[in-house]
């Protein structure tokens, strides 16, 4: 049974507690919103290829909080060098989870490199991540939840999902609003005065 992206993201974000989330542009940002909008989710509407590095910056700034980057295969492919950079920094509190439908979902469902066999999880392992797993079932997703909460990372997961069109559930678009609500939820009201 092929995994469905909304089920996967909903499971990863269930009872998320103090988890900080960066959502890569496009479908994964909509998935996170469908699972429940939160000020501690930062959905990207641009800067394609930068999601994993945003997660690294956040993980370094907040070493006591868990950080999850949820992004798509196309977005991750555009920033492959960041796997090497994260592999060097080795932040224990970071997980990068790629929702891999093997398609560019926002531009017409064209095949990405992962459709042709490019193995992102193996790349992450080779780059120095503590783990890099290919996930194809909900048991694998449940194991990720465990790593997300307590394992020493950085962790990487490539989660194969169906190439389906799902209803758009959009987060706010205003970048300054998204930044400010995240910082105030994380750092307190004084963040506005920093």
């Amino acid at each position: 049974m092929t995994l469905l992206r909304r089920d996967v993201v909903k499971a990863l974000l269930a009872e998320r507690g103090e988890l900080l989330v960066v959502a890569g542009l496009g479908s994964t940002a909509w998935d996170c919103t469908a699972a429940g909008d939160s000020p501690l989710t930062f959905p990207m509407w641009g800067a394609m290829g930068c999601a994993a590095m945003m997660g690294l910056g956040l993980a370094l700034a907040q070493p006591r909080r868990r950080v999850l980057v949820l992004t798509g295969d196309g977005e991750m492919l555009m920033g492959l060098g960041s796997l090497a950079t994260i592999g060097v920094q080795k932040p224990q509190n970071l997980m990068v989870a790629v929702i891999d439908n093997e398609r560019y979902g926002e531009t017409g469902m064209q095949a990405t490199h992962t459709a042709h066999g490019v193995n992102l999880a193996a790349m992450a392992r080779a780059a120095g991540f503590a783990s890099g797993v290919l996930v194809r079932d909900m048991a694998g997703v449940a194991a990720l939840r465990h790593s997300l909460q307590q394992g020493a990372g950085p962790h990487f997961a490539q989660i194969k999902v169906a190439a389906e069109k799902v209803p758009l559930v959009l987060p706010p678009r205003d970048g300054a609003l998204l930044k400010n609500r995240f910082r105030q939820a994380l750092l307190g009201a004084s963040a506005a005065l920093q």
């Binding site: 290829g49 690294l56 920033g79 750092l187």
Partner: peptide, 17 residues
């Protein structure tokens, strides 16, 4: 590996204070 990574790094760092 490339300067573009720095913009993501800086944005994430600032989100985290």
């Amino acid at each position: 590996t490339t300067e573009e990574e720095g913009i993501g790094l800086a944005a994430g760092a600032w989100l985290g204070g």
